[in-house]
Write a protein that binds this DNA or RNA. Sequence first.
DNA 1: ATAATAGTGTCTATGAGACAGTATAGC
DNA 2: GCTATACTGTCTCATAGACACTATTAT
Lengths: 221, 221
Amino acid sequence: MEKETTIYEKPSVTVDLIVLTIEDEKLKVLMVKRSQEPFKNQLALPGVFVGISETLEEAAKRGLSEETKLENIYMEQLYTWGAINRDPRSRIISVSYMALVPKDKVCPQVGKRVSEVGLFPVEELLSKKEEIAFDHGEMIAYAVERIRNKVEYTPIAFEMVGEEFTLPQLQKVYEIILGKPLYKANFRKKIIHQVEETGAMTEGESHRPSKIYRKAETKRL
Amino acid sequence: MEKETTIYEKPSVTVDLIVLTIEDEKLKVLMVKRSQEPFKNQLALPGVFVGISETLEEAAKRGLSEETKLENIYMEQLYTWGAINRDPRSRIISVSYMALVPKDKVCPQVGKRVSEVGLFPVEELLSKKEEIAFDHGEMIAYAVERIRNKVEYTPIAFEMVGEEFTLPQLQKVYEIILGKPLYKANFRKKIIHQVEETGAMTEGESHRPSKIYRKAETKRL
DNA sequence: ATAATAGTGTCTATGAGACAGTATAGC
DNA sequence: GCTATACTGTCTCATAGACACTATTAT
């Protein structure tokens, strides 16, 4: 069918954000408590309508800065959700983006807008998906699966630690994402080629200090 | 920002299809020759507007059946393209879907609609992306990268052979997708757990016959 | 010295890659 | 027999997993 610009009834388009971080040794996601129907008082992902003159990326970044003060963050498009009744009000297609942030960077602005914003543990949320607004439970599940896969073969976990980190810290991030413990010897062998020493060490802990590393921007393998 | 159903100016939403198959030992993609501006007489991917009461999947399947007689086909959502001027006429966001078909199933309907439809070698198209309409060159490149990655760790290649096949045939498919020759001994070791013998053999060729297999629907390793 | 955590050496099993060999059809 | 392709055996090397060992801080 040839595309034409005839005016039919159009779906609306939004971007929904799955902002993941690690806090208290748990993978958490940024959520907003809805102040209006539908799904009043339930948790939802932050999201915005896509403006007529902004790209999807731009809309996603705008959504991010409206709920938090986050900028310069890893962000990746995940999937586009198009079920007819995913929003009971009207036909809305939503493009989901996953953002990863080191926990120290997050400061859930209690938005200029209404509602409460906060970090919630992914694991608990996924065990009660029904209580989450719209199809946002599925979106979170999708994001978690994506990051679990991707952490195995890309340096994506670096996005969840600060500029400088120790290998035990980084290993914790891997373990939390994967949900299982790793052998440190093996972990180090795998990761060592992707980092470089800063020269500094941790101090003041009552045990052996550890070297502080940064991500090596040099060639992958 | 709380989402509201206020009426702003909305982008339109389309689905574009990257239908891949193998013909003449080449990876090919289904394309349509545009009969109108913009990009008149250039090649474009088949696509349709997403109706107000159909899901993205449904729109994709409708697009598929309008250009071809394809049904029951492997299909997967790829990526959503949202650059502001990707369509010079108006703001159109496009969700791309990749479909894989065994070559014998394709019969590019010279659509009830206008334009010529046909299979074109991916490699040649990618070397002259500028000549392809819209951002469809990028979409094709994205799809090719996806299938190349995915063929390594999923049984996706089975979607491009018929129900029954020999291992040399299947190996050819892998080689074409990956763009490099494979050692047959290694290929067989890797694939043998995913197939089961039909009992039949090829006949009438002037060399040793080969066993005919089908995909094993049993457990993945 | 002890507790606690950082960091290393090494064995084994598995799988990818490379290559040489054997098997079976038509002619 | 020969040619052509199907199929198999096996060596090597890189990598993942498991585990035991050594190192260095504060107290």
